[in-house]
Simulated assay, not measured.
Amino acid sequence: MYTAALPDPQYQPEFYADIAPKRLMAWLIDFALILALTLIALPFTAFIGLFFLPFLYAAVGFVYRVMTISGGSATLGMRVMSIELRNAQGETLDLGSAFLHTLGYYLSFMMALVQLGSVVLMLTSERGQGLTDMVLGTVMVNRRL
């Protein structure tokens, strides 16, 4: 499944060093940014969005994640933490891959046990992959400088 284009965790561990805590910090940054964007979007819904705020947050977050990941293979939080997503060929994610990765993230997030399993995989797998990463063949790596 993985090609020579991806760094080997045995021979190039620096690409996978501290990925799990960096993912957590990136998630917190993205959470705050998505919340801010959701609050900015509220007046455009004539404040009706207050009645379905979790759904508005989810919709804004979905679009944010797909657009930022397809635009540079990382959300803004990931960029701050100097990490990025790569596909099995070592390439950045395109729009379709970013959509599928975000969809997988949302599906796993909707089921607590699946999300917990994904976090455990991030902490224990050789490449620090979550469930969605394993299904799609993507990896989170420290950005090449």
Rank of each mutant, 00 (worst) to 15 (best):
H101N: 14
G72T: 02
S73E: 05
L39P: 04
E91A: 14
V63R: 01
L42K: 06
L85P: 01
A17V: 05
L56M: 02
V119C: 01
F15Q: 08
V139P: 03
T75L: 00
F55Y: 12
F109H: 14
A112N: 09
Q89V: 04
G128C: 10
A26Q: 05
M140Q: 12
I34Q: 07
P9S: 11
D30A: 00
L28C: 05
L116N: 12
L50C: 03
G77K: 05
D18R: 08
L123S: 08
Y57W: 14
Q10I: 10
A41D: 03
Q10M: 08
T45Q: 06
F62M: 07
P54A: 12
L107G: 12
M67Y: 00
V66K: 02
M78W: 05
F15P: 06
F62V: 05
L123E: 11
P7F: 06
G72A: 05
F31R: 02
G49A: 05
N87G: 07
G96A: 13
Y16F: 01
L33R: 00
S125T: 15
Y11C: 08
Q10R: 13
L76N: 03
V63N: 03
S125Y: 00
G117R: 07
L123K: 11
I29A: 03
E84D: 12
A5C: 07
E84T: 13
T92C: 12
Q129D: 13
V63C: 01
R144Y: 12
A17D: 10
S70R: 02
D133P: 06
P13D: 07
P7T: 08
M81H: 08
L35F: 11
E14C: 05
K22R: 13
L50P: 03
M110E: 04
L123D: 08
R127F: 15
D18C: 07
L42I: 01
I29G: 04
A41H: 02
M78Y: 10
P54F: 10
I48H: 07
L121T: 14
S97G: 15
T38H: 11
V120D: 09
P7S: 10
M25R: 00
L35H: 08
L24C: 02
L116M: 12
S82Q: 10
L145R: 14
L95E: 11
A98F: 05
I40W: 00
D30T: 01
G96I: 08
Q10W: 07
L85Y: 10
N142M: 01
P21L: 06
M81N: 08
F109L: 14
L39F: 08
A112G: 09
Y105K: 06
L113K: 04
L33T: 01
A88Q: 14
F99L: 14
A74N: 04
V139C: 11
I69C: 05
Y64I: 02
V66T: 02
L131K: 06
G117V: 02
T138V: 11
G90A: 15
L33Q: 00
L42W: 07
A20Y: 14
G128R: 09
G117Y: 09
Q12P: 10
Y11E: 14
T3Q: 07
L35C: 10
M140W: 06
W27I: 01
